[in-house]
Design a protein around this nucleic acid. Structure first.
Lengths: 123, 123
DNA sequence: TCAATAGTTCAACATCTTTTGAACAAGAAG
DNA sequence: CTTCTTGTTCAAAAGATGTTGAACTATTGA
């Protein structure tokens, strides 16, 4: 039940950049970074689109080597592959994350999260 | 006779990453970096494709804010917008360039350049 | 003036991407 | 066992992207 992930040496720069070139995926990465390593469920991203669409974008990020997806019950726990990417392309991820965290789409999802928390749901 | 370029604040991260996500354009950037600021003509890139195709890719890079294109006679002189990008997205360009310069496509064009030089053409 | 050089523009085509809804799978909760 | 939750897969539609050749502009040089 483990999903296919590229090994560090299989991660190609143009695939990484192409994956991050989509605004939705860049926002997903920005939000993951803002959660500072805390694993995140797909459901958290539904502000960005339909379940199907999020599933599609998360698969792209995983296949590019940017995220790791672990199966946990009916959920998938998404994390950034920060250490793998830092080894493969030193210095690449930090400036991207820094800019991505400031994106309006990320603000949107953070606000939605606050509203949910205010209503008593877990983070 | 000046071509349209985005101002630094008009440069969007997702556009930059999408532009660099194409292997041909990433190789163009790698080659420009390997020329260390020396302006480069479109003709230099014909190893990567037809004139039409190179024109298309160079326009994409210019519109994304990655390159500057200056008109000089019938030629266009292409340079990387390193300082603008370093201000807009500090630390972004360096690791990309470092990896892009090692790309096989860049090696190809450098070899073609050496052959041309050996036959007595200007760089 | 005439031809060569350096690039662009255009329309056409193929391909890849993104998005959607319906149907499905599988664990969790009752 | 049944139902709810979480997410995937599939096929279809819409759109964006990359590639090409022919025709074109504009400068350079004879």
């Amino acid at each position: 039940m483990t999903l296919p992930h590229p090994t560090p040496d299989q991660i190609a720069l143009s695939n990484v950049l192409a994956a991050l070139g989509d605004p939705t995926r860049l926002a997903i990465v920005g939000y993951l970074a803002s959660r500072d390593g805390r694993p995140t469920m797909c459901l958290n991203f539904t502000t960005f689109g339909s379940k199907t669409n999020i599933s599609y974008h998360l698969a792209k990020l995983r296949e590019a080597g940017i995220t790791r997806t672990e199966v946990s019950g009916t959920s998938r726990l998404i994390t950034l592959r920060r250490d793998d990417l830092d080894i493969r392309f030193p210095g690449l991820l930090d400036p991207i994350i820094a800019a991505a965290m400031d994106l309006p789409m990320v603000k949107m999802i953070e606000d939605a999260e606050k509203d949910a928390l205010a209503k008593g749901e877990p983070g």
